Amino acid sequence: MNALHQYLFDACRAARLGEPMPPVPGTHDVAVLRAARDRRRFERVVAGRRAGGGLRLRLRAALRRRRPSS
């Protein structure tokens, strides 16, 4: 059973019992990703490391290494 099947079962049950409908699958995905990112940033700050920019710095360093010296 996938998330859509479970949603349909829950929606049918909620309609029968007069309860509020469950949220559609994927409704809160962006909020969950943001919360995970914020938690990771918080843990980095508590550990004494930079909170952000790590990916950009690594990409810049990789591009500098690949560039042929003239």
Rank of each mutant, 00 (worst) to 15 (best):
A62R: 13
F9N: 14
R58V: 02
A36K: 09
R64M: 03
R40Q: 12
C12Q: 11
G26V: 06
R34Y: 05
R39T: 05
P23R: 07
A11T: 09
G18C: 04
L55Y: 09
L59I: 10
S69E: 13
M1F: 08
V32S: 11
G53K: 06
R13M: 01
G18R: 01
R41Y: 02
A62F: 06
M1Y: 02
E43I: 03
P25E: 06
M21V: 08
M1D: 09
R60A: 15
P25Q: 07
C12T: 15
Y7M: 06
A62K: 10
L4H: 13
L33T: 09
P23C: 02
R39P: 00
H28R: 15
Q6Y: 09
R34K: 12
A15G: 05
P25F: 09
E19Y: 10
V45M: 08
A62P: 00
Y7C: 01
L55R: 15
L8H: 14
P22G: 00
P68D: 09
P20Y: 01
A51W: 04
S70D: 03
G48E: 03
A51F: 07
D10W: 02
L59P: 04
E19G: 01
R65N: 02
R60C: 04
P20A: 13
V46A: 04
G26D: 06
D10Y: 02
H5Q: 14
T27Q: 12
C12D: 10
A61Y: 02
P23W: 04
M21Q: 14
R60W: 13
C12W: 07
P25W: 08
A15L: 15
A36C: 07
L4I: 15
Q6H: 15
V30L: 12
P68I: 04
R37D: 06
V46W: 01
R13K: 13
S70H: 05
A61Q: 15
C12K: 14
L63N: 12
A14N: 10
Y7L: 02
R49V: 09
P23I: 04
G53S: 09
R66Q: 12
N2Q: 00
A61P: 00
P20W: 06
G53T: 00
R50I: 10
R37S: 10
N2F: 01
L17Y: 06
R64E: 08
R66P: 07
R64F: 05
G54T: 04
L4M: 15
R58D: 08
A3P: 00
M21I: 02
R44P: 02
A62E: 08
A11I: 00
R67N: 08
R50P: 00
R65P: 03
A35Q: 10
L57F: 03
F9C: 13
G48Y: 07
R40K: 14
D38K: 08
G54K: 02
G52L: 01
A51C: 13
G52E: 11
A35P: 02
P20S: 11
D29Q: 13
R60I: 08
R44H: 01
R66V: 03
R65C: 05
L33N: 07
H28Q: 12
H28L: 09
R13N: 11
N2C: 14
L33Y: 08
G52C: 01
Y7R: 03
R41Q: 09
L63M: 12
F42T: 12
A47R: 11
A35L: 06
G54H: 13
T27R: 15
P23L: 10
D29P: 00
G52K: 10
V45I: 14
G26W: 05
L17P: 06
A51Y: 09
Q6A: 15
L57M: 09
Q6S: 14
